[in-house]
Simulated assay, not measured.
Amino acid sequence: MTTAPVQAGPGFAWPVGFNRIPDEPWARQSVDEFGLNYDDVGNHGWYKNLEPTIAQILAALGEDKIMVDFSAGTGILAKRLLSNIKHRVGILNVDASAKFLRVAVENLADDERAAFRLIKYLKDEKRLQLIDEVVEQPLLDVGADVITATNAIHLYYDLPETLQSWTRILRPGGLVFVCSANMHNPNAHAGDWIIDETVEKVNEIAAELVLREPAFEKYRGALEDSATFAAHKKLREKVFVPVRDLDYYVETFRSEGYEVMHTYDSTIFAQVEEWLQLLFTYHDGVMSWVGGSPKVEGTEPTEDALRDRRFLIRYSLEKLFSNVTEFPATWTYLTARLS
């Protein structure tokens, strides 16, 4: 279930001509179960990873300032911020998922400090819109004081282009706060996980079981056909993107005109059972080769296949973290200023 809506705050004067909630079909559609399931992830213990970023934002986001939460999802960060901010601010939640953003509207629509914009996929150009393409000129003229990207920057395929679009909405001297558990950080503690790399290990364990146990023989074809397996791996890597080095992010920010003020890391423990629930939510991206996917074979998996897929995900994760209920992961934080 979604959390209770944030109570209305003191209001905020958005620029004339800028509507907080756009009059678009996605904003009027019914709330989707997938979006609600993801919203519940915000209650999981590893979401304490937001606490350092929240502290930074609370210090930076003064009266009448504007923040853009890029890849805002269901508004998990905004909910926590608005419950702690008693003055006038504007928080624009931006995401590429209509299902997620619809839940954000459900949770935050009553607070005039919250606004929402959907980034659409442009089929003809084979790309997502940039932020200055979905934000109207009145807000672009005013500009944002802060941009955040929590648990998402590792998903941005073309990072330089993304940062260039941020520059076009951010005021000179504006701040960027980033955190991610999916960077190769040379300062990470020994034994810490890069959290998405658990997905590859889960697939390896599941593949061994499928090749060994007659009960799962029906899924061996996908493993043994190199073209099919490559297609499923490509699908998985769209959701759990191959990890890049921290240095890549630092150098890209600098090359795009940002001063990287500092980076730091923190070890945060994730509950195995809670991580399992997220993997269940994204099961098609985790292990689509078990039963197939409409994005690869063009057909939906059967109910039996979905049951086997969930069994294999659980079995493999519990085998990976046998005899423990939590595992350590490194979160990396980057703070930058637009020069």
Rank of each mutant, 00 (worst) to 15 (best):
A98N: 11
T74L: 10
D110R: 13
F100Y: 14
K99C: 13
R117H: 05
L82K: 07
K79E: 14
D110S: 10
K86P: 06
V103K: 07
K86R: 10
I76F: 13
A114P: 09
R113P: 02
K99R: 12
H87Y: 14
G75R: 03
L92G: 09
L82P: 00
I119Y: 06
K79W: 10
V89E: 04
F100L: 08
A78F: 03
I119S: 04
H87R: 11
L101A: 02
L77V: 07
A98E: 10
A78H: 01
R117M: 05
I76C: 08
D110T: 10
R117Y: 00
V94M: 09
Y121D: 10
H87K: 09
S83H: 15
A104W: 00
I119N: 05
G90D: 02
L101Q: 05
I76Y: 13
N107W: 07
V94Y: 00
R113G: 03
N107G: 06
L81N: 06
R117L: 02
A114M: 14
K86A: 15
A115V: 04
A109G: 05
N84W: 03
Y121P: 08
E112T: 09
L108K: 00
F100P: 07
L108W: 00
K99F: 11
T74K: 01
E106I: 04
A78N: 07
I119C: 04
A98P: 06
D110E: 14
L118D: 08
D110W: 08
L118T: 04
Y121N: 02
F116L: 01
A96H: 13
V94E: 04
I91D: 02
L77W: 06
A115N: 09
N84M: 11
A109M: 05
V94L: 08
A96T: 12
L118A: 02
T74Q: 07
L92A: 12
H87V: 12
L77Q: 03
G90C: 08
V105K: 11
R102I: 09
I119Q: 09
L77I: 03
V103R: 08
L92D: 06
L118Q: 07
F100D: 05
V94S: 04
V89P: 09
N93D: 00
L77S: 09
I119T: 08
L81S: 12
A98M: 12
V94P: 01
L108E: 11
K99T: 06
I119E: 01
L92E: 13
L77R: 03
I76E: 13
K86I: 14
D110M: 08
K120A: 07
N84H: 13
A114T: 13
D95H: 07
K120C: 09
D95E: 05
I76D: 10
S97T: 12
R113V: 02
A104P: 01
F100Q: 11
I76M: 14
A114N: 03
S97P: 00
K120F: 04
R113Q: 12
R117C: 05
E112A: 13
A109Q: 14
I76R: 10
I85Q: 12
K99M: 14
I76T: 13
F100V: 01
